[in-house]
């Protein structure tokens, strides 16, 4: 077996190990009655899902998007708006067609993903005409536009955000039971990881990675980088939008903060901490982030300074992130 294949097999095993650890933590917490730990693990799964979305664009496409909070927030707001209208029994809109509220997750997720995907298509179509620092700035600018729009949208809470009091439902499950809601988030995370792995190993994914390594060289074999990157950016936005929908349901609350540049930065931190272009990178990154927040957040409100130092150390000494540290010389895109 070649080194590349061995590396991929080891990465898959490590991904399974990390997911098993997360699952194991929840099982122990369920047995010992630690509901708070289950909520923390749910948060890890949701943030990891957002990171899996960004990792497609950043890790494999080389697109340093500093505006993924826009998609996270759109997913959240779609969920919040539909749920609040369902609660009030009113229509979201009657023109051009009547759109009623919904509290069914299976109906809300596709709408959240479609809205996030449409935003990603628009933002990507414009921002992908630039590169480097300009791409970062354009994605950031779009996210900030949406952030300020949400702040000044009184119908849905404006700066105060929007609460909905009952978590949306899923057939056959009681989503208000922490472990059952965790199961939903975990299942979606696993599906996203499988989709991500399949995409990355498909011809589309290989071309995306080839264009990331050298645009001219890729074009010389007939690859059109712009179209590839746009598709990757849209899929990435849709996955992050789904994470936003789950996050809104977890808190039963959405606010403009979900779209702020802080959120974009945090999603990026999950990816960089865990390992850019590593399948399990966002999962490891989100887990460490939540763990640090939980362990150090109670000690000092300046715990993010320590996170900053850790991030600095990772960037300087382990550019492959935590996953890269474990896998060492194995393949890294």
């Amino acid at each position: 077996m070649g080194k590349g294949v061995k590396g991929m097999a080891r990465e898959t095993l490590l991904t399974l190990a990390i997911l098993s650890a997360l699952l194991g933590t929840v099982i122990v917490a369920q047995i010992t009655g630690e509901g708070f730990v289950i909520t923390l693990a749910t948060k890890v799964a949701i943030f990891a899902l957002a990171g899996v979305g960004l990792n497609l664009a950043l890790g494999y496409g080389g697109l340093v998007s500093f505006g993924h909070a826009a998609f996270f927030g759109i997913g959240g707001y779609v969920t919040g708006i539909l749920a609040s209208h369902a609660g009030a029994g009113t229509a979201v809109t009657t023109l051009p067609f009547a759109l009623m509220g919904s509290n069914e997750m299976l109906g809300i997720w596709p709408m959240a993903m479609l809205a996030a995907g449409a935003a990603a298509l628009l933002i990507g179509a414009l921002s992908l005409r630039t590169s480097g620092v300009y791409f970062i700035m354009v994605t950031l600018a779009f996210a900030q536009m949406l952030f300020y729009f949400a702040i000044s949208w009184p119908r849905y809470g404006g700066e105060d955000g929007l609460s909905f009091y009952v978590r949306n439902s899923f057939p056959g499950l009681n989503t208000l039971v922490p472990v059952q809601y965790f199961a939903i988030c975990m299942a979606l995370l696993v599906l996203a990881l499988i989709l991500s792995a399949a995409l990355v190993r498909s011809r589309f994914g290989l071309a995306l990675q080839a264009a990331r390594q050298n645009e001219q060289r890729a074009a010389a074999v007939g690859i059109r980088p712009y179209a590839l990157r746009l598709v990757a950016f849209v899929i990435s936005g849709m996955i992050t939008g789904l994470a936003g929908s789950l996050y809104a349901d977890l808190n039963r609350f959405v606010s403009p903060a979900m779209m702020s540049w802080h959120m974009s930065g945090e999603i990026m931190v999950f990816v960089i901490l865990g390992g850019v272009g590593r399948l399990a990178g966002p999962v490891a990154g989100a887990a460490v982030f939540i763990l640090l927040e939980h362990l150090l957040g109670g000690v000092s409100e300046y715990w993010k300074a320590l996170l900053g130092l850790l991030l600095l150390a990772i960037v300087l000494f382990a550019p492959g992130g935590l996953i890269g540290l474990v896998l060492r010389r194995d393949r890294h895109v």
């Binding site: 011809r203 390594q213 010389a220």
Partner: peptide, 29 residues
């Protein structure tokens, strides 16, 4: 990319393969 699709295959100076991709992936892409 359109010139390449018209039917011109380039073997560039200095080889320039897609380094992190495997041999099979370089060919597949």
């Amino acid at each position: 990319h359109r010139v390449a699709r018209l039917g011109i295959g380039l073997v560039p100076e200095g080889r320039r393969c897609f380094g992190p991709l495997s041999v099979a992936e370089n060919l597949t892409v």
